[in-house]
Nucleic acid binder design. Structure first.
Lengths: 344, 344
DNA sequence: TCTGCCGTTGTTAGCGCTGTCATGAGCGGC
DNA sequence: GCCGCTCATGACAGCGCTAACAACGGCAGA
């Protein structure tokens, strides 16, 4: 018979045809554990041994199987991150900050998308948890009690973000959306606005911002200029349509507080298209301080959110937790800042 | 002695304190393999057995360890995705489409960020490959030969995207950036523009678009209005500054082709701020067809790229490849479309 | 010279799951 | 009554790696 024998128990290659640690060891004239050490704790291996091993790794094109590593060591090297959606750039900065810090520490990011339905999220988080991530972060607070309980049980270090709560599952890094809405509405009132409308989407964060808006109005003895304008999707187009709707419902409104910069920018564009003077006739305020806010004319008055830092800080805390350090503050408020520009 | 014995070989819980498949089996009065089947191929297990098992899973809060599963089955259930950056919304749509299709098929997304330096990317891809992903996708073409060779050796189904090449590592799904640049430049020429400038960033895709621009000019016997305006980062502010730079270098320019909608929008905003008539005095064209392009006044003439479909289609092809289906076309050109609006 | 320690390497035994084959019960057809 | 088939379940081994401990040589100090 010609060709390679097929019944040999080991042929120097794993099942997938890829070299295993043992093959590297054989090539370097040592054993598996030493190869493992050479790659993970280089200073525990004699320099020349290490050299031989690295040469063998190079020669064979060896890539460690991290599933096996995770199984044996009980450390996956993965941090999971759950976002409502990635398509909307709102959270991209946070993802970026998170992935930057986590990546630098040698972790890989397992991305989960979608937090719309409680059931779907429960499934998603379960699946992610199955990967034994060393930490888990989520944009927003987990609402579903069953899911919260599940996550607590897993004891995976976890960070909720972009909001605050007194009882995080583990940690929370964010800011008070309610206070942000409150502060911006107060700003509008201080600027003399008396008929202020709210434009927002339907998620938890928008709801909190709306609460702040409503509270501020009440404190000032004012009433909403119109029933809330709700949008289904956070797009510039939705912002424009919302503004038209507002003017129909309450032509006398003198300010629009948009729960999101994208909506605010849309509203601003519509105002300009309609020849409606901003801020003289109508003030427009947003929330988020996306880059475009400062580039528009008139520039958008908004609330600056430390999106990037939220992600980065969450990752840092989780790294500390992974390292076994004690975290003194489980609730981290990174605050926000009113950025007063021209539109309000 | 009181308290739990510590020398029992098994105590009904895995090392991490989490239940293992065996614990579920014990609780359900069956064996590990049947539990495995009940969860993975439910119809291979008798309904009542399945019921008992699911009840036990529920009661114990069992979450399968997917590292162990991946190791044993040689299928990780992971698809890896590498993007240049997530912070820029340019690719978010693609990530979204990819993750949607992959997620629906039960795959998890391992996200890799950063393709700037060849060496860093090599490390990143190696690390990702170590996770034994069932497929790998990347935005852009992998340039580094060593990395290409590595990826070929792993035999992981792989899709490069957002560009085309005759020799993909495995598959490529995208469009011709050169042709897109060419088509838009021709459009400008057809509209009577004769002094056309180029504004772009420094990545591979922008370079290809620039080539199309240069070719189109040459075919028409025209010359660039000015030396290329290069920007370091793709932001609205960079677009505005680039436009100012252009007007300084070539006040007589009658069109600006921006390799990216973000830059084009920035340029447009700057024009409006400076009171420069668009398109009468200066035409501005972009590439990407981001949402804001159609909402601005004047609306931006641009090239529509099927960003979402690129991601979705790449995922679909990879799923087919995972399923062992034969792929007839390894190079998929999803094309582009000139969207003529008001700005050019 | 002997002891004890350190630095280096190796042996063993799993980590938790699933592929593969074996087993056994139930059933219809001859 | 027996055969062969299907369906449901189980036993066993092993995926590729690393924790934990063992072993060994060399060396300083007693």
């Amino acid at each position: 018979m010609s060709g390679p024998s097929t019944d040999a128990p080991r042929r120097g290659r794993g099942v997938g045809g890829r070299p295993r640690i043992e093959d590297v060891a054989a090539a370097a004239g040592t054993t598996a554990i030493t190869v493992s050490r050479a790659l993970r704790q280089p200073d525990k291996v004699a320099p020349e041994t290490r050299q031989r091993i690295l040469a063998a790794v190079e020669a064979l094109g060896y890539i460690p199987n991290l599933s096996a590593s995770a199984l044996a060591s009980r450390r996956s090297g993965i941090m999971a991150l759950v976002v409502p959606t990635i398509a909307n750039s709102v959270f991209a900065e946070t993802v970026d900050g998170f992935s930057e810090v986590a990546g630098r520490a040698g972790f890989q990011i397992l991305l989960g998308q979608g937090t719309y339905s409680a059931e779907a999220e429960h499934r998603l988080l379960t699946a992610l948890a199955g990967r034994q991530p060393d930490a888990l972060a989520r944009i927003g607070i987990v609402r579903h009690d069953e899911t919260r309980a599940l996550l607590r049980r897993t004891r995976i270090p976890m960070a909720e973000t972009w909001d605050l709560t007194d009882e995080p599952i583990d940690l929370v890094v964010g800011f008070s959306n309610r206070d942000a809405g409150h502060a911006m509405t107060r700003h509008l009132i201080r600027r003399g606005r008396r008929s202020i409308a709210y434009i927002g989407s339907d998620d938890d964060r928008a709801a909190a911002r709306r609460r702040g808006y409503a509270d501020a109005l009440e404190e000032a003895g004012l009433h909403p200029a119109a029933p809330d304008i709700r949008v289904r999707e956070i797009t510039y187009g939705a912002g424009r349509r919302a503004l038209r709707a507002l003017l129909q419902l309450a032509p006398e409104a003198d300010a629009a507080f948009c729960a999101n910069d994208v909506l605010a920018v849309g509203a601003l564009l519509e105002c300009r298209k309609m020849g409606l003077a901003v801020p003289d006739r109508l003030a427009v305020a947003g929330l988020g301080d996306f880059e475009i806010a400062q580039e528009l004319t008139p520039a958008l008055t908004t609330v600056r959110i430390p999106s990037h830092r939220i992600g980065a800080h969450a990752a840092e805390l989780l790294l500390a937790r992974i390292a076994g350090e004690t975290i003194d503050r489980r609730v981290v408020d990174l605050g926000f800042e009113i950025v007063e520009r021209e539109s309000a």
